[in-house]
Each structure stands twice: as C-alpha cells, then as structure tokens.
C-alpha cells in the first residue's frame, strides 16, 4: 500500500512538473521572439504584437500572413506568438512577456476574455495600445475590436445558404463545438431567430456540441440524421465540424438529400464543396483580417484616430468603424462555394 501511495505522490509531482515545464516552454518561445522586439524598439520602430488563441492552426497562420504583409507595407515590426493549446494561462504568459518587451501595440484574440481583461489593463497602464481581434474582450480597456464580420452577418449568411439548398423549408440541426464559445453561441442565437422570422417553413430541431473534434462532429451528425429521418439540413458551426457534417452526409450516402453548410476553411472544405456534400462555407478573408488588425495597431500606436470609414489599402476600402462600440468591421462574410474555393491558399 505504501508503494502505491508513493506512486501516486510521485505521479502528482510529475504532473505538476509537466504542467510547469509546458508553461515555461511557451514563455521561452516568446522570449526568443523577444530579441527582435527589443531590436525593433531600439530604433524607435513601431512594434505590433499579435497573440492568437493558439498557434499552428491554419486560421491564425493566415491571419499572421496578413499581418506580416501589412507590416512590410507599413514599415513596422510584426510579432506573432501564441500558445500551442487554446489555454488561457499559457496565453496570459505570452501577453505578459509582450508587456515586458514594451511593444507599441498589443493585439489579442483572448481564449478567456474575463481573465485577459486585467492583463490588458496592465498593458494599457504601461502606455501600450491594446486591441482585440477575432474574439472580443468587451469588458476590458481595449481601444478597438477588429471584428471579422458582424454576428448578424454570419448567422444570416449561414441560414440563407442552407435554406437556398433546402428550398427554404424542412428540418435542420446544428453541430457546434465548444459549449461555452461566446461567438458560436451568438451566431446560433441569430440563426434561430432569423430562421423563425424569414423561413417559417423551416425548423431548427437540435443543437449538439462536439468540441473541437472532427470525429465526434461526424459521428454526432450521423446520430442526428438517424434521430430525425426527415432531417434535410446540417450546419457545422466551426472549422472542425463543417467538414465533419459533410463527411457524415457523404458516408451515409445522403448527398443531395441532406444539405450542409458551415464555417470551414476553404482548403478543408474543397473536396466536399466539389462532391456536393457541402453547399457552401461561410468565412471571411482571414488574411485581410490579419492585415486590418496590424493596420489598426499601427494607427493607434502612431496616435491616429480611426474615421467612420477607412480606406486601408486597395483591397480594404470603406472599412466601417463604430466609435460608440469601438468596433472596426472587416465587412460582409465571404461565401465560399465550389466555384471560388480554389482561389484560397489556406
């Protein structure tokens, strides 16, 4: 028995060690990026840092690509560093390290808006311009939220595209991801209300949550089709469930009977858009979002204010800024179909 207890104690210590080490890893990683920041700050160049929810996924890598492009064109230094898992504590470490490096502007896509708020205040107190992008921290001191698309825009586009495929009537279900993801839940609320008002012959029968797990999304979509034999539509609410619901329809041999759409990245949706198991994917131009975030960071850092409409570059004209909510809006969502899917590289 004693040996068992020892094993458990040692195991607990090891667990703590692993957690500490993994916490440290992200810190070391960010400090390696810090040397460039210090150099950048030395010659009084504007430094804009972006902390995504997690590093290494195509979505944020595309934002990073847009930010880099903006930095080249604007002549500023662009820093990019995120945690390897969507972990609020690891993300906070990276934000802290950027605060210590005294960057000119700090852009965060917070995993947990509430726990990020005090850190953002700390940054603002040090004179750093603070922005959020992709996901907002509404109760924080952030000066601008760079919004990819309005909640209404996305919810309505998802519904319109699906209803076009379903002929404006029938039963559909949503496979969402994290149960607590504020943006997904806001879109779902719009989908519900908009379906009820604009498509009275259609009903949303169920919303299920698969986490960020493609296999779980696929198997839940299959279960939904079995539970509702008269189901003719499925929505994949995030980038892992959008291809998942299309794959489920394909596997069940119901392409053309059950229609799907969702929020998926172009490359992952391409095979399904082409074989018809997915009718459309709703997204926004992620690279442009990164570009716009970097541009907004530079504007604030150089003491400029945002106008009601802003011409950023040839691609980004008439970008609306709402000064009461402090939201800079990229524009209408992008509808990706089999016709334009091959024009995107991510």
């Amino acid at each position: 028995m004693i040996s068992k207890k020892k094993v458990i104690a040692v195991g607990a210590i090891a667990l703590a060690a692993v957690l500490t080490v993994s916490g440290c890893t992200s810190r070391t990683d960010s400090s390696s990026g810090g040397s460039t920041a210090a150099a950048g700050a030395g010659d009084a160049k504007i430094t804009v840092a972006f902390v995504p929810k997690l590093q290494g996924i195509p979505y944020f890598e595309a934002m990073n690509a847009g930010g880099k492009k903006a930095a080249e064109e604007l002549g500023i230094t662009w820093l990019y560093q995120g945690p390897t898992t969507a972990d609020a504590a690891a993300q906070a470490d990276i934000v802290r390290s950027y605060i210590q490096q005294n960057v000119s502007a700090l852009i965060v896509a917070p995993n947990d808006p509430d726990s990020m708020a005090p850190l953002l205040k700390e940054a603002a107190d040090k004179g750093i311009k603070v922005l959020t992008a992709d996901t907002d921290a509404p109760d924080s001191v952030r000066e601008v939220f760079v919004n990819q698309a309005s909640v209404e825009g996305i919810g309505e586009a998802l519904t319109d595209q699906l209803m076009t495929a379903m002929g404006g009537k029938g039963k559909y279900a949503i496979v969402s991801c994290g149960e607590t993801a504020a943006n997904l839940n806001a879109w779902i609320a719009v989908q519900k209300a908009y379906t009820a008002s604009k498509y009275p012959d259609a009903t949303l029968v169920n919303v299920v949550y698969a986490g960020e797990d493609q296999a779980a999304a696929t198997s839940m979509a299959t279960d939904l089709m079995n539970a509702n034999p008269d189901l003719t539509g499925l929505v994949g609410e995030c980038t892992s469930s959008a291809p998942g619901v299309a794959q489920a329809v394909k596997d069940a041999g119901k392409t053309g009977t059950v229609f799907t759409d969702g929020l998926g990245t172009p490359q992952s949706m391409a095979p399904y858009l082409k074989d018809g198991s997915s009718s459309a994917s709703i997204l926004w131009d992620v690279q442009n979002l990164g570009y716009l975030a970097a541009w907004a960071g530079d504007q604030l850092a150089t003491g400029k204010t945002l106008a009601a409409t802003n011409d950023v570059n040839a691609d980004l004209k008439g970008i609306a800024y709402d000064s009461s909510s402090k939201v800079l809006l990229l524009g209408d969502p992008l509808v990706i179909t089999k016709d334009n899917v091959d024009t995107f590289s991510y």
């Binding site: 094993v7 040692v10 195991g11 090891a14 667990l15 692993v18 080490v21 993994s22 590093q55 290494g56 996924i57 195509p58 890598e61 390897t84 990245t265 490359q267 992952s268 391409a270 095979p271 991510y346």
Partner: peptide, 29 residues
C-alpha cells in the same frame, strides 16, 4: 520508473513531434 510518469513525458514529446510534422497547417486532401 512509474509508468504514469514516463508516459506523461512521452505524451508531451509525441505531441511535440506531431506538431512539428503538422508544421502549422492542417493536412488537406
């Protein structure tokens, strides 16, 4: 060494290696 400790360690190493192979993008097509 206790199995839970070793496999905790290797779990992290395997994930690291896998993320390197992924190389900041999904595997498409």
């Amino acid at each position: 060494v206790a199995a839970i400790i070793i496999t905790f360690g290797t779990a992290n190493i395997f994930q690291f290696l896998a993320l390197r192979v992924f190389g900041s993008s999904t595997v498409n097509g």
